[in-house]
Structure formats: structure tokens, C-alpha cells
Design a protein around this nucleic acid. Structure first.
Length: 501
RNA sequence: GCUCCCGUAGUGUAGCGGCCAAUCAUCACGGCCUCUCGAGCCGUAGACUCGGGUUCAAAUCCCGACGGGAGCACCA
């Protein structure tokens, strides 16, 4: 064997398959998934996970993907976010086959609620919320539970048509269930606040438990995903569908996606914005899609990152460096290279030849073009590099020529030392006399060990080479020996947002 | 407190009874390459929480402990 087929003895290097695992009970062409955001804010990396998984599964099975706005709490929903969220999804590269609002189906929900009441599976509860809470905690039923269904129906109609206050419709579950989610959960409640789409047409709104289950079933979704914290509500989800004689989808849960030091919840972000600690929902330190975009993270990076995390239920907090590594690889082949000199010091080169040097914008891909830099005897170089060099040392202005340091003061003096590349000499990025003054914002971790980090945003000032003035907003380039930076034009200035090394 | 879920290298993941002396990425370290401290290439180091059980065979199944997370809303 060794002689005839030695390759069979060699252990093959196994390749990791990064695609999603097969779905249970899934048939090509028949899988329907859905992404159901509440239009109450900007989408973040957690939403990205959910929407990408939903979308990719539909694609994988040639199925259908539905975008459903779960807008059944007028207190949370704001008009602007329907479009905001769609924009965020499009940026991610997600397309949906169908789009609707849960609020479109309220009449249907009312009918189903009525059915439950008639079946004695739901009742109107007029207890105070504290009393409900208490009863739930102690596993005690309240008197509303025993009301006849004629009266319940009457009360329900009253809720809808507006004379009753503070009543809710509850599922007749099991107040003694070990699963507290089954202790007669609330299905509908009164919210007297105009809905951004429907005004004050309705005042009775379904809760998540009811709307989520009913919509998944009615819209034909076969494989709905949700995050793990809903797991205890599965029982309620299926009970409801059973009582309503509705089809039961194959419900699945996965762990929330979180990134170390980057808060995802509005509860945490909102105060930071209000206190001016971050600039807004698109702050480059935030894991919002807008923040990530502004910083130069590509949609494809997010997709690959989500895939790499998988859909298990094991909770974890990934380091952002994993995102950076993916992004860097994607960017490396496409990003133009420029010189940016951080904390510059003036460099005067005696007997410097005046040159018009053509330097390519990418080390290997010529298609990305080149720029011509006019040089005379004045340059700028990074101060920190000069600290490590002494008089007599020779280094190279990268892609230009060598120089030898002759004097170190407030500025550096040097003399021309030939054009030929000296092996192992330091190559330092530089600018000619004509520069673009710019600021690069460098994000750090917003939270360190759960504490807000006041120094999470660094402002780096420096000079960029003149060619940078030609760049457009949104271009991501690499400043050599500095890092990848997304360019933005603001007024007459050019500023940069640091993505990563 | 009660209930549920989870527990694989520093980090994140794959594996879910034999092919595991455990995958891949990242990180760290070493080398090669390169007119960037980037990318690429090669290599080294590093893990199945613990204790019982089932089985010819367990990271994989069962029980228990420990650790982490979640739920106990008229929010999703």
C-alpha cells in the first residue's frame, strides 16, 4: 500500500464547511422564513445575524423570505424606522420576497381572539397589573377566569370599542405550571396611543406571544428562528396554535450574537447618546449596522462573521478582532494604498533631486492605478519613526529614495543617499510639502470589563498625501503602516474613520 | 427562589456514540516572502468543566455537581 498509493496514508487536511447546517423537515422550494423586526430603532449586529440566517436559509432551499414588521405596540413603533430598517437590510445585501406589517392583520387577530373566548380558552381580565403579577407569582387564579363566555365576549367587544379601561385578554393556561410563561399570559392589551400607520383606528393590540405565533403560522412560515431568551415561550406558542387549529411551524432558537465591549441594547446605547458620549446610532464604536458601515466594515464581512458564529444555543461574546480579520482580508485586495503621516515632523533633504514619481496604488494589483507625487526637498514623516533613528542612519522614503539623517532638531535634516533599494532598511511613509491635513477617528472598546471607557475614541491628526483629496466619501483605503480607513468628506475637510490595522 | 437553556484551546467555532492521538478561524510565537507595522506562505504552542453511570467503544447518551446565561411584563 505504501508503494502503490502513498497518498491514501497521508492524512487529508479537512476543510471547514462554513455553510449553514441542513434544516429539519425542509424541502427544496417549500421553505419559508421570516425576519420580524420591531420598527423601533436602528438595526445592529444581532439583527444582522437573525436576518442573514433567515434570508440565507430561504435562499438555500429556493424558498421564500418574508420581511414582517412586528408593529403591534404603538408605544414603541416610530414611522421613520420602517424605512431605516429596510435601508439597513439592503445595505447588508438582503432582499425579501414579501413585506408586510403585523398591524395589517389586526382584524384577523380579533377574530381569532374571539374564537378563543368562545372556546373558553381566553378571558378578559380586569385585575390590576400588580394583582396579575402577584397571582402569577403565587400560581393563583383570579375571579375573572370564571366569568361566562357571553360576558367575556361582551367585555372583549367593550375593550375594542373603547369604554373599558385597563382590561387585558388572557390565555386560559395553567396558573400552576412550572413554566411561568404559561400562567395565563396576556394576549391582548389596550394601548391608547396612535399608531404611526393606522392612527387611532385600534386600541387593542396583541402581545408578542399572540401576534408572533399567529403571524408565523398564517403567513406560511415553515422555519421561524428566534433568539434563545424566548425559549420558555415555546410552549405558549404551540398551545395557542393548537387551540386555534393553526399549522405549527418548525420553531427554532439560537443564541444572541454579542461582541465584547460593544453594547447592543437600546437601553445601554440611548443614555450614551443623550449624554453625548457617543455621537449617535452611527457612532463608529457601536455595533449598529450604521456604525459598522461608517467605520468601513463591509456587508460581506458581516455575513461571513455571522456564518462563522453558527447558530448554536451556546452563548458567547466574540472579540471584534474576529470581525476585523475577515474585513482585512476582504479589503486587502481592493483597497488603494496611500501615505498618511501621523504626528508629522518636517524633513528637509539637502541636495534632493526634484522628482515626479509615479507610485502604484496597490502592491500587486496594477488595475487599481497609480498616482504621481511631485517631490522637492521638503517632506513630512512620522515623528515616532524619527525618534528611533539617529544622525548618520540611512532610511528610505518608501517608493522614492534613501536618505541619511544629518541633523535632528525641531525638524529633521537629511541628505540624499541614492535611489537603489538597500535590503532591510526601514521604509517609511511620507508626504511631500503639499499635504492634506486630516483627522482620523480611531475607535476603541466602548466598554472595558463592563465599565464605560471614556477614552474609547482617539483623534489622530496628521498629514495625508495630496492625492487623498481626490477620494470620495465612502471609499476605504489603506494608509500604509497605519491601517484601513474609511474616507468621508465633511464640508471642505476630509476626515477618516479607522476600521482596523 | 423556581424553571429552562448552555458549558470543546486565550477568544470564537466544527464535531453530537467508533473515521477525534478533535475542525477551522483568530490570537501568540518562529521562519519565508514583500519597497507597509498590511496581505500571502510554512511551522510551533494551545481545548472536550468535574464526578459517576450505560456501552466492546463517549467530547458525543444518562444522572449529579459546579460554572455561565435567560425567563418569571399589559416589551419584543
Amino acid at each position: 500500500m505504501k508503494k502503490t498509493a502513498p497518498e491514501l496514508l497521508q492524512k487529508e487536511k479537512k476543510e471547514r464547511d462554513f455553510s449553514l447546517p441542513e434544516l429539519p423537515d425542509a424541502e427544496k422550494g417549500k421553505v419559508i422564513t421570516r425576519f420580524p423586526p420591531e420598527p423601533n430603532g436602528y438595526l445592529h449586529i444581532g439583527h444582522a445575524k437573525a436576518s442573514i440566517v433567515d434570508y440565507e436559509y430561504a435562499k438555500m432551499y429556493n424558498g421564500k423570505f418574508i420581511l414582517r414588521f412586528d408593529d403591534t405596540n404603538p408605544e414603541n413603533v416610530a414611522l421613520e424606522f420602517f424605512d431605516v430598517q429596510k435601508e439597513d437590510l439592503r445595505w447588508l445585501g438582503i432582499e425579501w420576497d414579501e413585506e408586510y406589517h403585523t398591524s395589517d392583520h389586526l382584524e384577523k387577530h380579533y377574530k381569532l381572539a374571539e374564537k378563543l373566548i368562545k372556546q373558553k380558552d381566553a378571558y378578559v381580565c380586569v385585575c390590576h397589573s400588580d394583582a396579575i403579577k402577584d397571582g402569577r407569582f403565587q400560581g393563583k387564579e383570579c375571579d375573572c377566569r370564571d366569568v361566562s363566555n357571553e360576558k367575556n365576549l361582551y367585555l372583549w367587544k367593550d375593550m375594542i370599542s373603547s369604554s373599558v379601561e385597563g382590561a387585558v385578554l388572557r390565555l386560559k393556561g395553567d396558573m400552576k405550571s412550572v413554566n411561568t410563561a404559561m400562567r395565563d399570559p396576556t394576549l391582548f392589551r389596550i394601548i391608547d396611543k396612535p399608531h404611526p400607520l393606522l392612527g387611532d383606528k385600534y386600541r387593542v393590540w396583541p402581545t408578542y406571544d399572540f401576534a408572533g405565533a399567529v403571524e408565523d403560522s398564517l403567513s406560511g412560515v415553515t422555519h421561524p428562528f428566534r433568539t434563545k431568551e424566548y425559549e420558555l415561550r415555546d410552549e405558549c406558542y404551540f398551545r395557542l396554535l393548537e387551540l386555534l387549529k393553526l399549522r405549527k411551524p418548525h420553531l427554532m432558537e439560537f443564541a444572541r450574537l454579542s461582541i465584547e465591549g460593544m453594547p447592543v441594547s437600546k437601553r445601554k446605547i440611548k443614555p450614551l447618546i443623550d449624554q453625548g458620549k457617543v455621537s449617535g446610532y452611527d457612532d463608529i464604536r457601536l455595533p449598529t449596522l450604521r456604525g459598522l458601515k461608517k467605520r468601513g466594515i463591509l456587508p460581506e464581512t458581516i455575513k461571513q462573521f455571522v456564518f462563522s458564529q453558527g447558530i448554536s444555543k451556546a452563548e458567547s461574546s466574540a472579540a471584534f478582532s474576529l470581525v476585523e480579520a475577515i474585513n482585512r482580508k476582504l479589503l486587502d485586495s481592493a483597497a488603494k494604498r496611500y501615505f498618511f503621516v501621523q504626528d508629522p515632523i518636517k524633513l528637509v533633504v539637502d541636495n534632493a533631486p526634484s522628482m515626479k514619481k509615479t507610485i502604484s496604488l496597490h502592491p500587486t494589483d496594477e488595475k487599481l492605478g497609480s498616482r504621481i507625487i511631485k517631490t522637492d526637498n521638503i517632506f513630512f514623516v512620522p515623528k515616532t519613526d524619527m525618534k528611533n533613528l539617529n544622525i548618520g542612519d540611512v532610511f528610505r522614503l518608501k517608493d522614492l529614495y534613501n536618505i541619511m539623517i544629518t541633523k535632528k532638531n525641531k525638524e529633521i535634516n537629511a541628505e540624499y543617499a541614492g535611489e537603489e533599494l538597500i535590503p532591510d532598511s526601514a521604509k517609511i511613509q511620507w508626504t511631500a510639502e503639499k499635504v492634506i491635513k486630516m483627522i482620523v477617528f480611531v475607535p476603541g472598546l466602548l466598554y472595558e470589563n463592563d465599565n464605560y471607557n471614556p477614552n474609547s475614541l482617539e483623534k489622530v491628526e496628521g498629514f495625508a498625501e495630496d492625492a487623498v483629496s481626490q477620494l470620495e466619501t465612502g471609499e476605504i483605503v489603506q494608509f500604509e503602516r497605519f491601517g484601513f480607513v474609511r474616507i468621508e468628506r465633511q464640508n471642505n475637510n476630509i476626515i477618516g474613520f479607522f476600521a482596523h490595522k
